[in-house]
Amino acid sequence: MFSGLTNRRTLGFCIVFFILLLFLPLFLPRFYIYLLALIFVTGLLATSLNLVLGFGGMYQFHHAVFYGVGAYAFALFSKKTGLSPWLGYILAPAIAALVGMVMGLITVRLSKLYFGMLQLSLGSLVWAIVFRWYSFTGGDDGIHGISVPDMISSTTGSYYFTLIVTTVCLILMYMIVNSPFGRTFQGIRDNPERTEAVGVDVKRHQLAGLVIASAFAGVAGSLFATVEECAFPDLLFWTLSLELIIMCLLGGWFIFMGPMLGSAIIVILRTFVGIYTEYWTLILGIVLMLLILFLPEGVLGYFQEKFSKSKNAALVEN
């Protein structure tokens, strides 16, 4: 089943990297472990966005909604019910997927910018409800002191949990991207008209893609709630969604690991620039400007472009 998914060298590199990550908590200070967990969560979220954005070509302008919904679903579940918090990790993606499906049913009829704008307005509606519904969501204060299963409540525990869940989700998403569904999805990105002409129900595939992406965003949301033990309305605010798009762009959105790299860069920059100045968004803005002007294919995309000439010829092994 896994054969042919990736070549040996890449697989080997990934395994070594994963093992390295497993051992990091033994010698890294706590803050860095926490930071890494945050990178995994953000990276997972950005990768899930890229599933529809980079591989599906859909203008998903408000992906953060599903992240927030996942975080809130997990938080509210653990706060309001006496049931095991572990169940929250199943509930969060399920609710996020449900919200994704409802929004998708309304939006997939539209194309490109209209789709994005309607997605943005529906998402803003969800944000407004969360923001105002004090009695249920805590309004702008959010929810604090979420109870997380003991096993993963420590920094190291949540690090391992995040690492493993993120890895599993990445593998699943990688498989989806390389599955017939993923292939078809990329066809829709390149040319929806042609894809429909070869007998593919484009709208249904787009809807399915949206639901899948929102489910993974929901997982990321529940992980965030685990790491930070809180949830707040900013998780669903539209500026976060655009920042996610920046992460995809920065890493390169035609490459699977691009968004992961992009979010690592952004999270690290934000953390360390934030130490020296409160004007972090100014720097982010300038980075984004330079990126669009000079590196529109992203960092990984740039390198791939550079080396693709020789690679192209080697691809014929099929």
């Binding site: 968004t281 100014l282 803005g285 669009i292």
Partner: peptide
């Protein structure tokens, strides 16, 4: 450029102007 890029480019101005 395509709309998405233009949108992001203007968003970069939002970030810069916000801090300015």
């Amino acid at each position: 450029r395509e709309h998405l890029m233009l949108l992001l480019f203007t968003f970069s101005f939002t970030l810069v102007f916000g801090d300015l």
